[in-house]
């Protein structure tokens, strides 16, 4: 029996992994040109590190890890400066969902049933998914980054905090606000 070893074969990289890496980037940053650039940067960076590949992971996992780091760089850039100001503004808007004194839902923002969530009708589900995509895009960049890393990549909280330079306390606030906003956006655009 031949044991499988992980080896690199850069001659086959583009044919084997380019589309996969491109999709991986697209769903996380939602920008086709930027995704293309990141795929290219990933391969070129990988090429420089070929001699450091230890064969402990598959070629695909190794390349994906490099791309992941590049995506986090994008998140970080997007959530600095002006983006922070935008996030703060969105935070203030979110505070309007709850009464300032006792924290109770304001009547106009109180959760109501969203039919597309309960029905099994595929058409309704499709419609709701479309709205969800738009609502995700409307989140401030930093919230979107935190939300995506946690819910999609299942990254450790400590890791997200370090990478994106947010405190643990801030992390939970962002997770909360992102979801309250997302839900409100779904309700508003559905009904």
């Amino acid at each position: 029996m031949i044991s499988e070893t992980n080896v690199l074969n850069p001659h086959k990289w583009v044919a084997t992994y380019a589309d996969y890496l491109y999709m991986y980037a697209i769903v996380r940053i939602n920008d086709e040109d930027l995704a293309k650039d990141l795929v290219q940067e990933t391969f070129l960076a990988a090429l420089e590190r070929v001699d450091r590949f230890e064969g402990k992971s598959t070629e695909r996992t190794w390349l994906t890890a490099i791309l992941k780091n590049k995506i986090v760089d994008v998140y970080r850039k997007k959530s600095s400066g002006f983006a922070i100001a935008a996030a703060n503004k969105a935070t203030q808007e979110q505070d309007e969902f709850f009464d300032e004194g006792n924290g109770h839902w304001k009547p106009e923002y109180a959760p109501q049933p969203i039919a597309g969530m309960d029905e099994q009708d595929p058409l309704l589900k499709k419609e709701l998914n479309k709205i969800l995509q738009l609502c995700l895009q409307k989140l401030p960049a930093l919230w979107n980054a935190v939300f995506t890393m946690k819910h999609i990549d299942d990254a450790a909280t400590e890791h997200i905090c370090t990478e994106l330079h947010v405190t643990q306390a801030n992390f939970w606030v962002i997770i909360h606000r992102a979801k309250v906003n997302l839900r409100a956006c779904l309700q508003k655009n559905w009904n």
Binding site: V27, N129, L132, Q133, H151, L186
Partner: peptide, 23 residues
């Protein structure tokens, strides 16, 4: 609803990884 949204988001990402969009 929050739990449904989590499931929807995950499904959404899962589905888009299977999409036909190619370089």
């Amino acid at each position: 609803q929050s739990r449904v949204i989590n499931a929807m988001v995950q499904q959404l990402f899962h589905d888009s990884m299977k999409s036909e969009l190619k370089l």
